[in-house]
Simulated scan of single mutants.
Amino acid sequence: MSSTELVPASGTASQAAARVDGRQFLTFRIGGEEYGLDILRVQEIRSYEAPTRVAHAPPFVKGVVNLRGVIVPILDLRIRLSQPSEYNGFTVVIVLNVAGRVVGIVVDSVSDVLELAASEIKPRPEVPAAIDSRFMTGLCKIGERMLILLDIEAMIKSPDFGLVD
């Protein structure tokens, strides 16, 4: 299984000062939508490899993998968001550290890392959507793209996922 370790970006003093005001987000795609999550939650990005199935798990729990001695549940966020997709060469697993656990989420593809100032992030809408608005921290327009920012920790802690007591 190949993986990409994320390392903090180094930069100039002005870039470091900008990072104090802004936050960095890993962006990814599910279906036709683009999402972002706090880069500080990301441990690594791995190519998708079929995990070991777990009996009686909900459909979005694809199974578990052994990641350097740690058993990691793999959740297909696409299924959870009612966006079933095929598994192809772009399908990846984002390994996260959230709620005191290591969890992998399956997404269609990873785009890039964006730094966003607080002023660029618009409040979350209170409209019915595939994703519960309590799991959204806001929206951001990047050129012609609309980025949905997720509170991945709240999502994983949610009773809907059944991973945290």
Rank of each mutant, 00 (worst) to 15 (best):
I39M: 12
L163E: 09
A9T: 15
F135S: 01
D151K: 06
K62C: 01
L147P: 04
P84T: 00
S119C: 09
L116G: 11
R80K: 11
A17M: 14
R145P: 01
R145D: 12
V107I: 03
K157E: 15
K141P: 01
S85E: 14
I152C: 07
A117R: 15
L116R: 08
G31H: 07
L114W: 01
V42S: 10
R101A: 10
Q24V: 12
D21Q: 13
A130W: 02
S158K: 09
Q15F: 14
A117E: 15
L139Y: 13
P128C: 00
R46A: 04
D108W: 13
I131M: 09
G69R: 00
D21K: 11
E126F: 12
F28G: 04
P159N: 03
R23F: 00
I131T: 03
I94S: 02
G36A: 00
V113T: 10
V92A: 04
V102Y: 00
V110Q: 01
Y87M: 12
I142M: 08
T91H: 02
A154V: 01
I142A: 05
L150Q: 11
A9F: 07
V98I: 03
L67P: 00
Y35E: 11
A118M: 06
R23M: 02
D108I: 14
Y35R: 02
P128W: 07
L149M: 10
I94F: 07
E144V: 13
K62M: 05
A130P: 03
F25C: 06
A129F: 08
L150R: 07
T4F: 14
A50L: 04
S47A: 11
L75T: 10
M136W: 03
L75E: 08
D151F: 13
D160R: 15
R145N: 11
A18L: 14
S85P: 05
E115R: 12
L96H: 07
I94Y: 06
G104A: 06
G138I: 11
R53K: 14
I30S: 09
T52P: 01
V102H: 08
G143S: 03
R68A: 10
R80W: 08
T27K: 06
P58S: 07
L67E: 00
I156M: 06
A55V: 12
R41H: 15
A50H: 03
G32M: 07
P51Y: 03
L26I: 14
L26H: 14
D21T: 15
G69F: 04
G31D: 09
Y48E: 06
T52L: 03
S109V: 03
Q83T: 14
L26S: 06
Y48V: 04
F90Q: 12
P128K: 02
P59K: 14
P159I: 06
R68Q: 05
R80C: 02
L6K: 13
E49S: 15
T91G: 04
A118G: 03
L81C: 07
A99M: 00
